[in-house]
Amino acid sequence: MTIRVWDYLQEYENERADLLDAVDSVFRSGQLVFGASMRSFEEEFAAYHGSGHCVSVDNGTNAVKLGLQALGVGPGDEVVTVSNTAAPTVLAIDAVGARPVFVDVDPDSYLMDTAQVAAAITDRTRALLPVHLYGQCVDLAPLERLAADHGLKLLEDCAQAHGARRHGRVAGSTGDAAAFSFYPTKVLGAYGDGGAVLTSADDTAARLRRLRYYGMEERYYVVETPGHNSRLDELQAEILRRKLRRLDDYVAARRAVAERYAEGLGDTDLVLPGVVDGNEHVYYVYVVRHPRRDAILEALGTHGIALNISYPWPVHTMSGFAHLGYAKGSLPVTEELAGQIFSLPMYPSLTPEVQDRVIAAVREVLLKV
């Protein structure tokens, strides 16, 4: 049996009755878009975060894109973010016509080095876009101060941090808006694509609702401003409603897996994830670090363990973003991490038996590479 870095099949068996009931309830409702399930999910997801509004969309990339647009970011603007993130974060900036400006990351947490942000701000900067990476939160306090001092917008990328908290405050509840992905692998994952934007500003929420629906109000056919077709369908909304009730259970299970890894690998030379003081990590992925990463992955493959790298190529090194002009070595910590990090299997239904097999294989491989 090949052990994969993520698997949903056991979780599906555990939740099958509820998920099939969700499907049946939607198909019997007579409405497949803009129905009761979508509105209920939006209300419940907003309430979980203490936010005034949740505007659901079709995927996480469009959540970032529409979030930027709703905050007034557009052509000629600059957005400060990081390069060690999934490419969609940066693609969304590009999609609204803005220019991504990268800062490096902290070598211990792998999160945005907020001390570098002030120097990256210019008179063209419009927004700050921190990424709550791998399951824990960026310290937003210095970014809030910078945003206030320079008249900037703060958009949180929460795609990897459902339920994560910093000093008790849940990810997505601090900035002017927050973008979420519900891609199946996420801590709160759909059975397909999905996304959402949270905001407590009424005007931002109204713009988001128009932007996701061609630029129209939901029940009219008059375009007020050019928008998109970015709706979350009823089926995914109802599935997410059911799974939202179990979000805290998913997080607890992930933390138990992380604790077992720490117990089983803590005495090796593998660098395990660190938790920033004040953070409550949700372990979207369990990212470890070793200078002989590639040899380790090759050896683990012979044990039937297929792992993942998040992310092997920083965005600023990709050919599609060569026009930004970032030379090799411009983000040294980000580039060093990209050559050393990889992810161990992490999902709520990962059994102790399978995890023990992973731990034993990793320990064996580390003695040989």
Rank of each mutant, 00 (worst) to 15 (best):
L300G: 02
V223W: 08
S173T: 10
A258K: 07
V73I: 14
P273F: 09
Q31F: 02
V55K: 03
L270V: 09
L9N: 01
I296H: 05
A115F: 04
A237T: 06
V187C: 06
Q69C: 11
I341Q: 14
A201L: 12
A70G: 00
T125G: 07
R209C: 02
G52C: 09
V288F: 07
R212A: 04
D108T: 12
L331P: 12
S349L: 03
R39P: 03
D277P: 15
G175S: 08
D18E: 15
D193M: 03
A127I: 04
V170C: 13
V197Y: 10
H316Q: 10
A161Q: 01
D58H: 06
K368H: 15
E234Q: 05
L350D: 05
R212E: 01
E42C: 13
P291E: 11
V138D: 06
L235C: 05
L350H: 01
L350V: 06
G67S: 07
K243P: 03
K328N: 07
L9H: 09
D106F: 02
R165M: 08
R241S: 13
H49Q: 08
H228K: 11
T199D: 07
M1Y: 10
R39F: 15
I93H: 11
V197N: 04
V80E: 03
K243G: 09
R99Q: 12
P352A: 06
V222E: 15
M38A: 13
P314K: 04
L19M: 14
S319C: 02
V223F: 04
A70Q: 01
R245V: 05
G175W: 10
L307S: 08
T174E: 02
S40N: 01
D139L: 03
A196P: 09
P130S: 05
H290E: 11
V33G: 05
A115I: 05
G76E: 10
A159M: 11
E224R: 15
A179N: 04
G60I: 00
W313F: 10
A120D: 02
V170I: 15
P345H: 00
F102N: 02
H132R: 03
L188Y: 01
R4H: 13
L232Y: 07
A299G: 10
G67A: 05
A177H: 06
R245G: 12
V333E: 14
F102D: 03
A252I: 03
E13V: 14
V282A: 07
G320H: 09
N229F: 14
E263I: 09
G35F: 13
